[in-house]
């Protein structure tokens, strides 16, 4: 698959911006498309089982950096740990093979139900191939160049925007059942079919996460 090009990224960005509104009905412009064989419910490939990301988290004016370690285990579970360069780890979570979220450790300041739920949702959106998918359907943007997979889960409706030329996932948006955007994820600078940079931005709170892959093995 050809390397992802900046121009393609810009084209899709502009198309998404032009064709999607903000708030209710953000996805009314999508047009029904034929089903595709592609499956974009996970960003992981089949070759690698461990990933190290340089991570940056920003909440309002507060910034924090560290390493996010992701390990795909043989039993189908996924282990995710965030650790600063200096000091003990911030959290150690697991999505089990049955899709259960397990907190192995979380530092006291973050160990609140509302915070854990938000982090779980973000990590699940990015890294988990959800088994709670109720319905998949295929759509396109009106420009016909961008294929969109719509997936209804128990908690949200997720839209996966695929670059028409490369098939790479360029954007991912998570919305409420009414079409109100909650989270927008962009995936950029693909090398060997994997995005070197992933940015997740919440639409309703001033929280953003950025991941740059350091190592994939």
């Amino acid at each position: 698959m050809p390397r992802y090009r900046m121009n393609d990224f810009l084209s899709i960005s502009i198309a998404v911006l032009l064709f999607s509104g903000c708030g209710l009905g953000s996805y009314k412009h999508l047009e029904k498309a034929n089903n595709s064989n592609a499956d974009v419910t996970s960003i992981f490939d089949t070759d690698a089982t461990s990933y190290i990301f340089k991570s940056k988290l920003q909440y309002a004016k507060n910034k924090f950096g560290g390493l996010l370690l992701v390990k795909l285990l043989e039993d189908g579970s996924i282990r995710l740990t965030l650790t600063p360069q200096v000091g003990p780890k911030i959290f150690d979570f697991e999505f089990t093979a049955t899709n259960k979220f397990v907190v192995h450790y979380c530092m006291e300041q973050m160990n609140r139900p509302i915070v854990l739920r938000m982090i779980e949702n973000d990590l699940r959106l990015l890294f988990v191939n959800s088994e709670s998918v109720n319905k998949k359907s295929w759509w396109t943007l009106p420009d016909k160049k961008t294929l969109v997979q719509k997936i209804k889960t128990n908690k949200s409706v997720n839209y996966y925007f695929l670059d028409g030329k490369t098939g790479n996932l360029a954007f991912l948006e998570s919305a409420s059942g009414l079409g109100r955007k909650k989270v927008v994820v962009s995936l950029e600078d693909y090398v060997d079919d994997f995005p070197k940079k992933i940015t997740l931005v919440h639409q309703n709170i001033p929280l953003s996460l950025q991941f740059s892959v350091i190592k994939r093995k």
Partner: peptide, 10 residues
């Protein structure tokens, strides 16, 4: 989280 960094530096 900066407390963690400080403790580690200490």
């Amino acid at each position: 989280m900066n407390k963690l960094i400080l403790i580690s530096l200490a």
